[in-house]
Design a binder for these strands. Structure first.
Lengths: 243, 243
DNA sequence: CGGAATGTTGAACCGTTTCAAACGGAGTGG
DNA sequence: CCACTCCGTTTGAAACGGTTCAACATTCCG
């Protein structure tokens, strides 16, 4: 049985195992899944609205984001993707993509053929279940975002977003200094939160003035995690992670 | 082979068949799925945040909505459920519910045990796929809602919501008179769209004044479907329905 | 019929946007 | 190493969309 932690698909396999026990044999199939590894520069498109790829892409390292463009040309970021997430499950089951996926920083992407993944799911009940679980986690996350965008005011909305980002970062790798990488422009944060870049700027300054966050170059430090979560109304339960 | 159209689960079976070919044998299993039928008054809770039911509920008739409550007590409606939709798939695969589901009008609900559904999925690859496809449709819908709430202004947002409602209603049953049932209070519409009931009222009046909609008791008529979709920036593609 | 829930309207208020200008830092070429 | 440019950040003032509050009208329902 191969259980090498340095397998590029390790994050994916780990996250698939969160909610479902996967047998050693199936785990081994996962470790031996044939894939092709590519590097994408920051800002590259992985998937475009309307695409219908015949393979699945897994985010191995880096951070990507999913967005939609309205008829008026306004952009809404609908998800942030962390290492381990499968980026185009939709095309495996339904049809063309309804959203774009773009890298936020340089990303390694593993490409797996639909055929290989379909066969795996057909052969292993537990792996199919695990993929479904990962999809449900994304759905749960989407619902919390709707609450965030629809019913929280700007300041709180940003605080909540920072909490989610920090929490998900920690799930991937515990950072020593409590400084979380937040490699987004204020424009991108605005697009994620339904606000303008200008307003993001002002509220970020507010949060810093209140001592809720400390701003560093392309990241934030959170001096008092509990206080920030209270302001944000953040409860990690919706992420369905175990850490 | 049983293919009775009046089987209470007919809508569910039909919607499961949209994206996946299901064999006659599996269709028969679906038709003979053991269930228990209940009636819920308008306003009843089907599922509560934190619940962990050991059965799945399928909406047979009526309309239900899913919502979350923020720490400040504000409500955000995150989905409208139409007949045929499975309401608590999440608990089948992950854990406790992260949202509430409540009936909008009187609803018939079929209850199916997790055990029965799990067995069915384990035995039929195509039924598992179909359930996954239905989940992906919900995810796609959630993403469009985020775009709607985050990036469209009030008037357009409401127009888009009305389009979606009408379109989904039509998918269930073609109405003769083009009058779509919209059995929501303005407060509920506000909670769905991240607006106040007062503002919903004003914008609804605006849309009516412009001739984009005609307001009837608990519904709307749409004189010019194409014009409304243009104003709303509505494109049915994200719903992944076939009609 | 009466009471509660929902819809309607106006005026004041406030959070967020818009526009425009200035500032800062990183990268490039001379 | 400086000058230049590009891109993102910062700041201010005015405008706007949406909220709040409060009063009143209407519909629903027991």
């Amino acid at each position: 049985m191969n259980t090498a932690k340095d397998n590029p698909l390790a994050h994916m396999i780990e996250s698939l195992s969160i909610h479902n026990a996967i047998s050693d044999k199936d785990l081994d199939s996962l470790y031996h899944l044939p894939y092709h590894l590519d590097y994408f520069e920051s800002g590259s498109y992985i998937l475009r609205d309307g695409d219908m790829p015949d393979q699945c892409r897994v985010l191995v390292s880096g951070i990507a984001y999913r967005h939609k463009i309205s008829a008026m040309g306004l952009r809404q970021i609908v998800a942030i993707h962390m290492p381990g997430e499968i980026l185009d499950l939709q095309q495996l089951y339904i049809d063309i993509s309804d959203s774009n996926v773009q890298t936020l920083i340089g990303c390694e992407i593993a490409t797996i053929s639909h055929a290989a993944l379909r066969q795996l799911v057909a052969e292993s009940y537990s792996i199919g279940n695990a993929i479904v679980a990962s999809m449900l986690m994304e759905l749960s996350s989407a619902r919390e975002w709707m609450l965030n965008i629809g019913r929280r005011e700007g300041r709180t909305r940003i605080a909540h977003f920072i909490c989610e980002f920090a929490y998900k970062s920690n799930a991937i790798e515990s950072l020593a200094g409590q400084v979380y990488n937040l490699p987004m422009t204020q424009e991108q944060m605005g697009d994620a939160l339904g606000l303008t870049a200008v307003h993001i700027n002002r509220m970020l300054k507010d949060l810093a003035r209140e001592g809720l966050i400390v701003r560093v170059k392309h990241g934030v430090a959170i001096p008092d995690w509990k206080r920030l979560t209270q302001v944000a109304g953040f409860n990690s339960r919706y992420l369905h992670l175990k850490n």
